[in-house]
């Protein structure tokens, strides 16, 4: 990776990364890619987030569902750990709390595969500066 040697380098890099991500998210299979973020701060991991992440990678793979699973930091819903955020194509992200393997299976089978909502959704109660 080239080093950032100036501010315009950084700006260029941001644009490239942005379009690369757009491509990754929507480009190849614009209708089928699913994005999943697993809250993997210490608190999440302690509640079992790692197992959930492993489980989902395997399950999605077994079911041949095209998905990107990434780890992320704390989402702030300590009372409902482990939490995961699922973004279906052309849909708003949905956060699920209290996820165990059973719930994960349900999320995959019901929400991801059929698009029907399941219990355990956590309403987003904040706004961030970046989506203003």
């Amino acid at each position: 990776m080239a080093k950032v040697k100036s501010l315009s380098d950084l700006n260029k890099m941001r644009e490239e990364l942005q379009s690369k991500m757009n491509l990754r998210e929507k480009g190849e299979h614009p209708d089928s890619i699913v994005q999943i973020k697993v809250s993997m701060a210490t608190c999440g991991i302690a509640s079992g987030a790692k197992e959930i992440m492993d489980y989902m990678i395997n399950e999605l793979d077994n079911r041949a569902i095209d998905a990107v699973i990434t780890q992320t930091g704390c989402m702030g819903y300590c009372y409902a750990e482990p939490t995961i955020e699922v973004t279906l194509p052309d849909n708003k992200p949905i956060v699920f709390g209290y996820v165990d393997t059973k719930k994960a299976q349900e999320i995959i089978e019901v929400y991801i595969q059929t698009g029907k909502l399941v219990d355990g959704i956590i309403p987003v109660n904040y706004e961030t500066v970046n989506n203003e």
Partner: peptide
């Protein structure tokens, strides 16, 4: 909404182990 995330703006959104995701934001 009651909350505004400034300090926590990226927490839970980006992969903290990937600088690219930080740069994108």
């Amino acid at each position: 909404k009651k909350q505004i995330r400034i300090a926590l703006r990226n927490c839970g959104f980006i992969n903290p182990e990937n600088v690219d995701e930080y740069i994108v934001r």
